[in-house]
Design a binder for these strands. Structure first.
Length: 207
DNA sequence: ATAAAGATCATT
DNA sequence: ATGATCTTTATG
């Protein structure tokens, strides 16, 4: 353990819990780190979305559909689910729950805290009003996460999450972004974010 | 073998 | 509103 980001690394038990929405809320305020080639980068998680393979039409693994892409979600919690969307963006998710249950949490925005100049360079794009790690594609790019990290352990040397202790904020809840194809499940209030945080990506249609 | 569809983003 | 860009998945 020792010196990583200087907080307390989340144990596997954190990810193995059975309620993906509880875990999603608990992830707010935690710090997500990567260390590739000695480049430590990280930030405070400020926006997430929960997905449940058994019951949720918005989840890639619905209804418990195991494919090459979704198979990692059926593993035990504490692994990385990374996938390519629109041929361009890599989205980083955290697998939760026990083996055989396909739940995951999409990290949609972080507030940069460690290695910010490295992340800004990775973005290679102008910083806008919401910074450079707002929106799931931008989070993964800033942290240097790509498809090669599919299945990586979140207790491994390259990707992990830490708790830095006291952190007061108000949790806001809305429907999820970009899941209109999910019918009635598009209405589930499974998106969570830290109220008032400037890095939060955007609001659902009609809010 | 082929085609269609994206848990997005930046720009117009 | 629209285009970029390519893997995964379903279907024949």
């Amino acid at each position: 353990m020792g010196i990583r980001g200087k907080g307390k690394e989340l144990p596997q038990a954190f990810y193995l819990r059975s309620d993906v929405n509880v875990i999603a809320r608990d992830l707010l305020g935690k710090y997500l780190f990567t260390n590739f080639d000695g480049n430590l980068t990280g930030g405070r998680i400020v926006e997430v979305e929960a997905y449940c393979g058994a019951s949720d039409k918005a989840c890639h693994a619905y209804p418990n559909k195991m494919t090459k892409r979704t198979s990692i979600m059926f593993e035990h919690g504490g692994l990385a689910y990374v996938y390519l969307i629109y041929g361009i963006h890599k989205l980083f998710n955290i697998v939760t729950n026990g083996a055989g249950i396909a739940d995951a949490i999409l990290v949609r925005a972080i507030e940069p805290s460690h290695g910010t100049s490295i992340m800004e360079r990775r973005r290679n794009s102008s910083v806008n009003k919401k910074g450079f790690s707002s929106g799931p594609g931008n989070v993964a790019m800033a942290l240097g996460i790509d498809l090669s990290h599919y299945g990586a352990s979140l207790q491994g040397p390259e990707i992990w999450i830490e708790d830095f202790g006291e952190d007061d904020f108000a949790i806001q809840t809305t429907t999820r972004i970009g899941v209109d194809y999910a019918g009635e499940d598009a209405l589930l209030p499974w998106r969570y974010y830290i109220g008032g945080n400037k890095h939060v990506s955007k609001m659902p249609k009609g809010e």
